[in-house]
Amino acid sequence: MKDCAVLFDVTKCVGCGSCTVACKMWNGLPYEENAHGYDAKLDDKTWTVVEYHDVKKGKEDVLRFAKHQCMHCLEPSCVAVCFAKAITVSDEGAVVYDAKKCVGCRYCMIGCPYSVPKYEWDKVFPSVMKCRLCAEKLAKNESPACTSVCPSGALTFGTRDDLLDEAWARIKADSGYIQKVYGETEGGGTRWLYISDVPFKDLGLPEDIPTKSIPSTIHDYTKWKPGIFVGAAAVFGALGLYTKRRVKIENEQRQGEGGKEDV
């Protein structure tokens, strides 16, 4: 299936954490205590977490669960900034990391607007660790591990277009939802889409991510570079020849006046 995506409906999540276990099972990751809970935190051994958030919904205090993992951007920042091309986008759209090519600059970690990639700090030859959207399962036409185990229907797997339609249909059908699909435009769009009845920033999703994708922001700079190199070469070459000649003439004039100087 091309153009894979997942819709996460915050209002349907019961916080069971099945997705975090499925992720660990499928990816052979060691278990730690931080996969779900109030202090859940992504790290090199935990690629997806279910965070608990005590949120104000209007006047009510409510408990909401937010699953976090790699957002699988349509135009991933990490892919653009990786200086060893170790991160690539698969045919299905999964953003996948290749440890064999990685040099370990960690630019992906700092360049990811969601700070998803994590590092194996305690290893001699560490890898960057993050959700891979179970790329090999996608290639076999299966759904990712986390979405396949969700008992409450909070995670829906499908193509991005279908899921966007589905998300907006749900929002239109129920006025309780926030009028926004998170991930539709963030950083040029992501493959993980969120809909919620409480503000996204209360769920740990950054709301200040510009619509323009980071790769295109960088490209706006990079695109000038060849011109600048060529232009600078031409200008400097010409200037160099011109000023050299001018200095030579000046020196000759000065020599004519009797001075004797090195250039």
Binding site: V81, C82, F83, A84, K85, Y107, H219
Partner: peptide, 8 residues
């Protein structure tokens, strides 16, 4: 790698 897109 010829990763021209990366400033690094």
């Amino acid at each position: 790698s010829f990763a021209w897109t990366s400033p690094l």
